[in-house]
Amino acid sequence: MYRFAYRLAGQQQDAEDLVQDVVVKLYPRLDELEAVDRLRPWLNRVLYRQFIDQVRRKGRQGDRPLSELVAPDSHADWLDSLESDNAGPEIQLEQARLRPALDRVLATLAPDQRALLLLHDVDGWRQEDIAAVLDIPLGTVKSRLHRCRAGLRKKLQRELEPIPRGGRVGE
């Protein structure tokens, strides 16, 4: 629960508070928890709903750059998928340019879109589990994931290439 809360909240203290709120809310209902078949997705769904409630209460203040979601010393570990073992200087330069742009673009996404991308593409959750946690149909998860990736791709292209191909600076 904590790892999921940390991915949603973005800071250790907020994640701890989120998990604590859920545990305090569920503690009086322990007998009901024993009847739940798949406890992990159910708890994560409760945690997600609690997070959404907090975000709605706070407004848009919960948005943070992605760079704050990951400890500075673990940046390389977090984006391993972008690096190869034998990355040359050109690849390293491109990745150094890509990371901050990716952080900025992900920070512009709505919290539910960011949560979906982080759950699936970063944490490696199955789409079926995400559907159970978010309490939405599997087809909706697939279509939202597709739209989020397409939007992320377009925003990232604009971020990295501010001048359109074949265009002039004055256009």
Rank of each mutant, 00 (worst) to 15 (best):
M1V: 13
R3I: 15
Y6W: 12
Q11Y: 11
Q11K: 07
Q12E: 15
D14G: 01
A15W: 01
A15P: 00
D17R: 08
L18Y: 03
Q20V: 10
D21G: 07
K25C: 13
L26T: 01
P28T: 14
D31H: 09
L33C: 05
E34M: 12
V36C: 11
D37S: 11
R38W: 07
L39H: 02
R40F: 12
P41S: 15
P41A: 14
L43S: 04
Q50D: 08
F51T: 06
D53L: 12
Q54G: 08
R56L: 06
R57A: 07
R60H: 10
D63Y: 04
P65A: 13
L66V: 03
E68D: 14
E68Y: 09
A71H: 05
P72K: 10
P72M: 10
P72A: 13
D73W: 06
A76W: 05
W78Q: 13
L79I: 07
D80W: 08
S81I: 02
D85A: 14
N86R: 13
A87H: 14
G88C: 12
G88K: 08
P89Q: 12
E90K: 13
I91P: 00
E94C: 11
A96Y: 03
R97M: 06
R97V: 03
L98I: 14
P100E: 03
L102F: 00
T108C: 14
D112Q: 10
D112K: 04
A115V: 00
A115F: 00
L116M: 04
L117H: 00
L119K: 02
D121I: 05
V122D: 07
D123I: 04
R126Y: 01
D129N: 12
A131W: 05
L134G: 02
L134Y: 05
P137L: 07
L138E: 08
L138R: 11
G139E: 15
G139V: 15
R144V: 07
R147W: 08
A150Y: 05
A150L: 05
A150N: 06
L152G: 02
Q157H: 08
R158L: 09
E161L: 04
E161R: 02
I163D: 06
R165I: 11
G166P: 03
R168F: 02
R168E: 12
V169C: 08
G170F: 12
E171A: 09
